[in-house]
Design a protein around this nucleic acid. Structure first.
Ligand SMILES: [Zn+2]
Ligand SMILES: [Zn+2]
Ligand SMILES: [Zn+2]
Ligand SMILES: [Zn+2]
Lengths: 141, 141
DNA sequence: ACTCCACATGAGAATGATTCTCATTATTGG
DNA sequence: CCAATAATGAGAATCATTCTCATGTGGAGT
């Protein structure tokens, strides 16, 4: 139970700041590139380490793309799920009381203990969605 | 469109057979090991290739562990979700009409197009769950 | 303000799952 | 059976992430 001490460093602040300025999910490498571009460079290993501790502290949410990349985003502390744009990473936090109840019910109905769940919804956000003009697909999947 | 021709091979049959004999999610490497152990060896690259085509054909379901491994399992064709044991990989297929509706509603409420969703529930199956004796935690998290 | 030193950093090596390469083998139509 | 060509598999290559360890630094104590 000994929460290891943590020191305040310029690098950790830079990562936290950058996270706070975007509402999109980004990979560690992308955050690293953003920091470098912003003239506030942080070593890649440190970006990974910082994102991980923030994740453990519940200050960022983590998800994995189909391609296997891990994405991070500053999120509110309360339990919630995401509606994520597959094109640009723009994300909206959503809650789903019905889903929570369903997950718990399903688990206990089958005798599973310590249930946990993953729920993500993806799509194309209004900015990235193809124009509603019929037949004209701007960006085929 | 031109569906590329596909030849029947001993290796592909072996993989399909092995998949049919288990109701658990396993990684490509684990399926490979099982095949080798069963005296029906298949090259690792071929196991990967076969699992991928089966996945594209909708005959196996795919999911990624927190550790980043990709797991495969023979599944029914209809859309469904999983209740998965974190300990042994035992899996039950479940459906959730309420969840389907919720996902669609959430997406359109925010103007997201082409919605898609991921829903997985994990826990400890009856065989792997610690005895119900109060206070005695056999396997702390 | 100065020292000390445990923790933090970062460049580069290591890891490990997955994919790619390409020489060899095997399926299938004729 | 033969030829055409898809499939296989051993090993190399890829690539995100993690590890190593020499060096830097926050901050408590003085
Ligand atoms: Zn978008
Ligand atoms: Zn939830
Ligand atoms: Zn189990
Ligand atoms: Zn569904």
């Amino acid at each position: 139970m000994t929460t290891p001490p943590r020191r305040a460093t310029r690098q950790q602040a830079a990562v936290a700041d950058m996270l706070g300025q975007h509402e999109t999910f980004r990979s560690a490498q992308e955050w690293h590139a953003l920091l470098r571009a912003a003239g506030d460079p942080v070593g890649l290993a440190t970006v990974y380490r910082t994102l991980q501790s923030l994740a453990e502290a519940g200050e960022v949410d983590v998800l994995r793309t189909d391609a296997g990349e891990t994405l991070y985003r500053a999120c509110s502390a309360a339990h919630h799920h995401h509606l994520l744009c597959r094109e640009c990473g723009f994300t909206v936090e959503v809650d789903g009381p019905a889903v929570e109840a369903w997950a718990t019910a399903v688990a206990s109905a089958h005798g599973f203990a310590l249930p946990r769940h993953t729920v993500e919804v993806t799509g194309l956000c209004p900015r990235c969605a193809p124009a509603t003009s019929p037949g004209v697909t701007t960006s085929p999947e």
